[in-house]
Design a protein around this nucleic acid. Structure first.
Lengths: 131, 131
DNA sequence: GATGGGCCTTCCACCTGCTGGAAGGTCAAG
DNA sequence: CTTGACCTTCCAGCAGGTGGAAGGCCCATC
């Protein structure tokens, strides 16, 4: 398969696939003309990567997940550990964003949003924490 | 004031201040020895930037906010518009992350996490969307 | 056989928002 | 006069790609 086919069938853009090869996530063969020649396993791996990335796993986690994917002897506990860490990170991020959201929402509500310069949002930003 | 002082008093790292000068967010004077010489307004602006960044505003939004900060004639509606857009972005991001979190949590719960290879997480990642 | 379009290749730059480090100048204290 | 803490510039790198230029290949059509 050429890169265009794999891109379409895996949902991973050709540019990204080349990048993934660069960083060693996939290693397609080459045909005589220099074109990358993808096997069905490559296609599966790319789809796997696409799904893992869409779940927010880092490239490094994807690398590990991919090696576990290849490993018939793997322990599901290894996979679970990675997923749990990632989940914790996401939940932490959600909390941070929720705190931000609340602060901002409060400021936005308190701002009249008219043509006068007075603005609680500006006041907050300008509140001098400058010692 | 030297950069070290402003860094400490504004809470913005010296490296970051230099970067902000690079991209034109602050324009400190220079003393005879080539050192940056920050005025009190610069300090205020840097504290403003620090706060705005900590609320998640992009550098570009900060640039606009800073010009509104400088503008005695500004309309609070302009500030509010920026904040509202930002808030919407954050809330969108929260929703995305919550969806991710739910998906992941479900997978994690269903994974036994033992020494066998069977793993619903892997199954999900490997579910061939490959046409 | 030439030509055209759609593939493919590599390489380099750019994005966001910094951060680290090297090499070197300056200043105040002891 | 030296030492150490400042300061300067410049260059490289992080994640995770994306865009584009310059050029090669392949297939179909005229």
């Amino acid at each position: 398969m050429n890169i265009g086919d794999v891109a379409e069938r895996s949902g991973v853009p050709a540019k990204t696939i080349r990048y993934y090869e660069d960083i060693g996530l996939v290693r397609p063969l080459r045909s005589g003309n220099g074109y990358r020649d993808f096997a069905v396993e490559d296609l599966h791996k790319l789809a796997f990567l696409g799904r893992a990335r869409s779940l927010g796993f880092s490239i490094d986690e994807c690398r590990t997940l991919l090696s576990l994917y290849d490993d018939r002897e793997r322990s599901s506990s290894d996979v679970k550990a990675i997923a749990q860490k990632h989940l914790a990170r996401i939940d932490r991020k959600i909390s941070e964003l929720q705190a931000l959201s609340e602060t901002l929402r409060d400021l936005v509500v308190r701002c009249h949003g008219d043509d006068r310069p007075e603005c609680p949002i500006m006041d907050d930003l300008a509140r001098t924490g400058t010692t």
